[in-house]
Design a protein around this nucleic acid. Structure first.
Length: 963
RNA sequence: GCGGGAGUGGUGUAACGGCAGCCACGCCAGACUUAGGAUCUGGUGCCUUCGGGCGUGCGGGUUCGAAUCCCGCCUCCCGCACCA
């Protein structure tokens, strides 16, 4: 680490530091030497109960297991800044503490290495993404090692390793080979579906059998179609975000609010394309319900609940000519107030319903200026396709739409309601059609206003209601026909009554819908997992046999998909793999003789590799199976009846609150249903670490200036003598406020850096970075060093023949108690505060040179070892400790020393503290009161007053309530 | 708009409903010093007539007692947002 010499503030620059002071230079020397020893001795090799990684299991066999994990990094070329290690250090301190405290701890790390940045770089440079990715992995791995983390290096892998993505492909085939049994509410192998269809014990699910003929009468190709339509991974012609400028489809999350690609800022179009989908919606209920069984933060659970977006209501059918329009509503109670019907522009019935001509006297606002309804519809649909889904969801936009020239019949009162298409109705939610109730819905009210449609109120608004749509509570009005009346009922009762009535009449039924959509699983990219799928001569997708996995990513000349003109909405995707013509065509014998097949040329999305990596840590070298079931039971299995099982502590950023965590939970549940894992959830406990932010400064031209050169004077921030503006936010090179762990390690050592990061707040909390405060952590470690080592001679100060005095024992055991609490609850700042108190006590009690009792010094070293592991090892070894401190037992507080003999108790008069008295710790209420009354100041306060009540809490306080 | 969370010294933070501000940074003073950017010691919420008074975003409430619980505001952060 050559940085030391270059840094102006190196603490070891002064001339006369004692020769054996814990300086940054010494810290680095110690750190590098222990990091080598850990590697040489395999200190952090975690034994499995069985298999190739089981050596040494006997020494941990009686321990409980603890599986701690970080969200693995994407190895970008930018390297780590000081914000990145926060979570990694949190799991590291925790895993070191748990190991010392008697757990068999698994703390692995890997790399999420498929993805766009590497592919973009490859497109620009022509260099294979694997080359740059592996170089980045090597760089980050070096940075992590230098932090002193206790990862089991034997378990490290990257998602791009063929030995890993072989099993990603295998899992895809499991999902492809499964269907969701709605009755059993779980996935089952597809062969069981075929058997049940053949035996007649099951009918094809709704929508899976286009011909409508009985299963037994279908030919083989029709049967194949029915079966394929049941699969959990399926091909579907669905509206997707097509970005011609990038040549790829994008997920909704990759499209900006103004309908452009997040990357590159190209226009994005909604259009139907055949894509791989995953039926995550089948799991919506279980994904929602099982949140209650997880130890995750409420806010995170709430984000997942919102994303799943379950809402209950009713489907209602409105007759329209020979067709029926099915709408979804959460307010069937307001059905009498429906005054028109709206379909999404892409609704499949639009074509069939559209009238030939406008009736006489059609309101010009309804026609969109077109001569015929068909023309109006065509033009409106064309406009809508140019808008992305997100763009259409801009609630502030004025309502637009056109009339189809027809009406539909309201089943409750026979009223004929005009049928519109409008883009404020979304095709993917509910049934893609609504009944519009302007009296009780704000959006419908806006549309009705713009189109001159009537408003009928069915909920009585309060007297002071100012108009518009009334969405509050109130008794039903205007809601009766010859058979049923809702008038006077409240919302819940009205919903129950009208739903029952609709069911009776065959006009509707209660239903539940979700915002969650099926997962678009294919991408037109190079740097991803190839699908283990080939197509036969009928274009039917067929699984590549497991024995032929992995399907290796082929070499190509050009890593980019074919791109098109920005606005060429009708272009079609051509993935990079489609140009690897030697690869795309393959001859296989799938049991019916050698035949020619065509390979799938899409690749999987970046999420695939991160959906199951936690399982692979259990034995990444296993070439026979995804994971040994025995290992999965040991590390992940449920601990008790009702426990979901899963990783014991998963730490990562809140940016993955929804997608990664939802996708991983979904895959895990499929694997559970198919019998591959015993756990029901992947992550039993999850913590979102906070972010580290920093100040950035801009000069009068708005350019960033180096934050390190800015000085504060009289509340003003100056760079080069000129005032600059300060903003608070991200750390980054372009913001000129980048601080790297390497710089900090160079200036102070890894242990100081670790202690500083952990000292600034609870793990979950975001906090600012402040380089000038790091020195406080260094001072602490220097004082701890001084407790053990004589700075002048280098000799160990502590002595066997010195007995600790009582105050020292109390300070020690109170510290042990507090530090344990801090480590257990991930409030490392608390642990550090208690360690500091103990250190300060020892410094004062024993001065700079008198010997510290060995037992106390040892315990102090053990307390700090999880936070500052190199210092811990060094002092432990100098004190003559056996083996690595990483495996030494963590101290336990003796309750005897946690209680004082005498305690100071506050005495209040009317809730205000007026004095303090010393009393025996076990003094009862009467003794407390007597001691308080004997106090001069209190006596003065009570003199002449009437004491109406006395509250005495032993060990805490006395409160006199006086008149 | 809906949902979630948070407001405590100059700063990061700490306080089972029981003495507000532990521990740090910064700042002030002192010691050791040629020197201090090292180290050590002490001080540091605000006001004060030195008795004390006031203090946890604002206003109410519950309680003997509220930073903590309840109600209503204000501000900030995060998520969702034409989801019928």
């Amino acid at each position: 680490m050559s940085q030391t010499a270059d840094l102006p503030h190196g603490a070891d620059q002064a001339g006369d530091v004692p020769p054996h002071r814990y300086t940054p230079a010494l810290a680095q020397q110690i750190e590098l030497s222990w990091q080598d020893r850990w590697e040489d001795e395999g200190t952090f090799h975690t034994p499995n109960p069985t298999g190739r990684l089981s050596a040494g299991f006997e020494r941990v066999a009686d321990r409980p297991k603890f599986f701690a994990m970080d969200m693995f990094p994407y190895p970008s070329g930018a390297g780590l800044h000081v914000g990145h290690p926060l979570g990694y250090l949190g799991t590291d301190v925790t895993s070191r503490f748990r190991r010392m405290d008697g757990d068999n701890v698994l703390h692995p790390m890997g790399y999420d290495a498929f993805g766009l940045p590497a592919e973009q770089f490859a497109v620009q440079t022509g260099q294979h993404p694997r080359v740059t990715t592996e170089a980045n992995i090597a760089a980050i791995s070096t940075q992590l090692r230098r932090l002193g983390v206790d990862h089991d290096q034997r378990r490290t892998f990257a998602t791009i390793d063929p030995g890993y993505y072989k099993w990603t492909q295998w899992i895809f085939l499991q999902i492809f080979g499964a269907w969701f049994d709605e009755d059993a509410n779980r996935a089952r192998p597809i062969e069981e579906l075929v058997a049940e269809l053949d035996s007649g014990s099951r009918e094809p699910a709704a929508g899976t059998n286009p011909s409508g003929r009985p299963w037994a009468e279908l030919d083989q190709r029709e049967k194949n179609g029915v079966v394929d339509a049941h699969r959990l991974a399926y091909l579907n012609e669905a509206p997707v975000n097509w970005c011609p400028g990038l040549g790829t489809v994008l997920s909704n999350e990759e499209v900006t609010a103004d309908g452009r690609s997040e990357r590159g800022n190209f226009p994005v179009f909604r259009r139907p394309l055949k894509q791989w989908m995953m039926r995550i919606t089948s799991y919506a209920d279980r994904l929602l319900a099982d949140l209650d069984r997880l130890d995750w933060s409420d806010s995170l659970k709430q984000m997942q609940r919102n994303w799943i977006g379950r809402s209950t209501g009713a489907k209602v059918r409105f007759a329209c000519g020979s067709e029926a329009i099915e709408v979804f509503t959460t307010r069937p109670d307001t059905l009498f107030g429906a005054t028109y019907v709206v379909l999404a522009p892409e609704h499949p019935l639009v074509g069939a319903l559209t009238a030939d001509v406008w009736p006489d006297g059609t309101d010009p606002r309804w026609t969109g200026g077109a001569a015929t309804p068909a023309e109006a519809v065509r033009e409106y649909q064309r406009q809508a396709s140019r808008r992305s889904e997100l763009d259409r969801q801009d609630a502030g936009r004025d309502k637009t739409g056109v009339w189809l020239g027809v009406t539909a019949t309201n089943p409750v009162n026979g009223r004929e309601l005009p049928v519109f298409i409008a883009d404020y109705v979304l095709t993917g939610y509910g049934t893609g059609a609504i009944m519009a109730v302007p009296g009780e819905d704000t959006r419908d009210f806006d549309f009705a206003g713009a189109f001159g449609l009537p408003v009928v109120r069915t909920v009585q608004p309060p007297a002071d209601f100012e108009g518009g749509a009334y969405t509050g509570a109130g008794p039903m009005i205007n809601s009766s026909n010859g058979e049923i009346s809702l008038d006077g009922l409240d919302k819940a009762e009205a919903i129950a009554r009208i739903t029952a009535w609709l069911v009776e009449r065959g006009a509707g039924e209660a239903t539940t819908t979700y915002k969650l959509r099926d997962w678009l699983f294919s991408r037109q990219r190079y740097w991803g997992e190839p699908f283990p799928i080939v197509y036969d001569e009928h274009d039917r997708p067929v699984a590549v046999p497991t024995s032929m996995l992995p399907v290796l990513l082929p070499e190509v000349d050009d890593y980019s998909p074919k791109t098109f003109a920005d606005d060429d909405a009708d272009s079609a995707p051509e993935p990079p793999l489609s140009r690897a013509t030697e690869w795309t065509t393959v001859t296989l014998d799938l049991g019916d003789g050698p035949k020619e097949y065509r390979r799938e040329t899409n690749t999987m999305p970046n999420w695939a590799g991160s959906c199951w990596y936690y399982l692979r840590y259990l034995d990444p070298g296993d070439d026979e199976r995804m994971v040994d079931p025995e290992l999965e039971r040991y590390w992940m299995g449920p601990r008790s009846v009702g426990d979901t099982g899963g990783v014991d502590l998963y730490v990562g950023g809140v940016e993955h609150a929804v997608l990664h965590l939802l996708y991983a939970r979904f895959w895990h549940k499929v694997l559970h249903d198919l019998g591959h894992v015993s756990s029901e959830e992947p992550f039993r406990r999850l913590v979102n670490q906070g972010y580290i932010s920093a100040y950035a400064y801009t000069d009068e031209r708005g350019f960033y200036v180096p934050a390190a050169e800015v000085v504060e004077r009289d509340g003003q921030f100056l760079h080069d003598g000129k005032p600059v503006d300060r903003e608070y936010g991200k750390i980054g090179k372009s913001l000129k406020n980048m601080v790297t762990p390497d710089e900090m390690i160079g200036a102070y050592g890894a242990d100081t850096f670790r202690v500083y990061e952990m000292s600034t707040g609870p793990l979950e909390q975001s906090r600012p970075w402040e380089t000038k405060a790091v020195v406080g952590s260094q001072r602490l470690l220097q004082r701890i060093w001084r407790v053990v080592v004589d700075e002048q001679t280098g000799a160990v100060r502590s002595a066997d023949d010195v007995e600790p005095a009582e105050p020292t024992l109390r300070a020690l055991h109170q510290a042990i108690d507090g530090v344990r609490d801090g480590y257990t609850t991930l409030r490392f700042n608390i642990a550090i505060a208690r360690i500091t108190e103990l250190t300060n006590h020892l410094t004062q009690a024993y001065g700079a040179s008198s010997p510290v009792p060995r037992a106390v010094a040892e315990q102090l070293v053990l307390l700090v070892a999880p936070l500052a592991p190199h210092l811990g090892e060094e002092l432990w070894s100098r004190l003559g400790g056996e083996g690595s401190v990483a495996w030494a037992p963590f101290p336990t507080a003796d309750p005897r020393w946690l209680v004082e003999d005498t305690v100071q108790v506050a005495v209040q008069v009317n809730g205000k503290v007026r004095s303090q008295v010393m009393v025996p710790a076990d003094a009862d209420a009467a003794a407390l009161e007597a001691a308080a009354r004997a106090d001069e100041k209190i006596a003065a306060h009570l003199d002449g007053a009437t004491v109406r009540r006395v509250i005495a809490v032993p060990g805490r306080l006395v409160n006199f309530v006086v008149a």
